[in-house]
């Protein structure tokens, strides 16, 4: 237990900082993923066949390929692309992209694919009659979007987005392969130097459980709050 204590002797403070890192990557990835998801949903529901096909390809590929592969692609690929650009300007040698950015973007793109489906479903769940009613009272596209669509789409999407957030949290563990010191990487380092792998990976598991449990609770609160104006059957 001393191993997990705070300060110089234990790994408690390191693990705590690593937990904050996990949260930071997951939150950033989730938010960027929402942007991708909104764009993807808009494309899937758009009139243009090209946009629909592109969004279809995006969700199919990103959901059909292992997350680890996507993370590797960004980790290795990000620096290759940068190096190609740099060599055009006469710079040679290795350029690395930092693990935080690569990890956040890779997970954001994977999560965006899941968010796309969640948001698309939520948009389709808005009753047609409400849109007709809004048009009938003369709302413009922008007003309809703001007053009718957004409040309901957010409410309908909330449970699904909760799942996407849980996925983001758990996917951050994979970023440890790129060397970012989040929970997983920190526990690997700690178990390497103390020769107590079970202790530290169990600690990591507990930290993840705390994060997922708090998230479940938080999203449940948010759902109750968002449904406060809805009559229950």
């Amino acid at each position: 237990m001393e191993l997990l204590s705070w300060g110089d002797r234990g790994w408690g403070d390191e693990l705590f900082r690593a937990t904050l890192m996990t949260l930071a990557v997951a939150a950033l990835a989730f938010l960027i993923g929402l942007v991708f998801g909104t764009a993807g949903a808009a494309a899937k529901l758009s009139r243009w066949r090209v946009a629909r096909a592109a969004a279809d390809g995006y969700t199919t590929v990103l959901r059909g390929v292992p997350d680890l592969l996507v993370i590797y692609l960004f980790y290795f690929g990000g620096s290759s692309v940068l190096m190609t650009i740099a060599s055009m300007f006469g710079h040679t040698g290795f350029i690395g992209v930092d693990a935080f950015t690569t990890g956040a973007i890779a997970i954001a793109i994977i999560n965006g694919a899941y968010s796309t489906e969640v948001i698309r479903g939520a948009v389709l769940a808005v009753p047609k009659g409400e849109i007709e009613a809004a048009r009938a009272v003369g709302m413009s596209d922008a007003l309809l979007f703001r007053r009718i669509m957004i409040p309901q789409v957010l409410r309908f999407a909330l449970p699904g987005l909760g799942n996407v957030w849980q996925l983001a949290l758990k996917e951050t563990a994979l970023i440890s392969v790129t060397g970012l010191v989040e929970i997983m990487r920190q526990s690997t380092i700690a178990s390497g130097s103390t020769k107590k792998p079970f202790t530290f990976f169990a600690a990591a598991a507990v930290l993840y459980l705390i994060l997922t449990t708090l998230s479940t609770w938080g999203f449940q609160r948010a759902e109750t709050w968002s449904a406060r104006g809805v009559r229950r059957a």
Binding site: T172, A173, M184, S187, S191, K195, F198, A204, A205, Y208
Partner: peptide, 23 residues
């Protein structure tokens, strides 16, 4: 179910592959 759905698979893999040897 709660523990295995609430933690990343990588943690589970590491717990089994690296962790169990501690005992």
């Amino acid at each position: 179910v709660y523990v295995f759905r609430g933690t990343p698979l990588l943690v589970q893999v590491f717990l089994i592959y690296y962790g169990l040897g501690q005992f």
